[in-house]
Amino acid sequence: MSQLNQLHRMIRMKATKYVERSFEFANKSDEELMLFYQSGSDRAFDIIYQRYGGRILGYLRKRTKSDGGAQDLMQEVFLKLHRSRSQYKANLPLAPWIFSVTRSVFLDSCKRVSKEESTTPEVLDAFESIAATSVNDRSELIELLEGPQRLAVSLRVFEEQAFEDIAKHLSTTPENARQVFSRGIRKLRSLVQGKE
């Protein structure tokens, strides 16, 4: 029984220390927290996330106009922050550094999307050429696909829906919907080439 009490006391002491330590971290400046984060403290990361998560998500949400897209980018932002945390210099304020990382992740995603959009007409042309050369009935061609790829390709080709709408049907992000569609077209091409 006394051993149990001792264990209980020990757990309480550890829990109190944890809370005290968290409280101690909460009172630190951003720059001090960053030093702890650089040395591998995950609690320092928690506080940085609490302080900046909302700002990053708000900034990205306003620009992407999509909650899912903003959340995906936010993950990328924190991954980039984490991987480049050793490059941060503690004599400089943290907020502009986090802002520049957030902005660069957002701009990179814009470039990615515009590159994919510019290739979409080419992909559709490829689909038309596949349909014209090998199978007369386009729906017959789409029947070769399965699951989300079939849905994405048929919504895009027959109903000319935007990727934002296709994403809703697939319960995913527009970026993913675009990838599913491109993969479907690639698969069709390889299937048709295999038949010839």
């Binding site: 900046y52 936010m74 957030t102 902005r103």
Partner: peptide, 30 residues
């Protein structure tokens, strides 16, 4: 743009289940 970023909600991220999942996902990866 930076001023706009700084004025975004700084009191913390919304404490919904979705956002706690987001935090767990990010922290689990890092």
């Amino acid at each position: 743009e930076f001023a706009e970023f700084s004025q975004s909600p700084s009191a913390g991220i919304e404490s919904s289940i979705a956002h706690s999942h987001l935090f767990e996902g990010i922290k689990g990866r890092l």
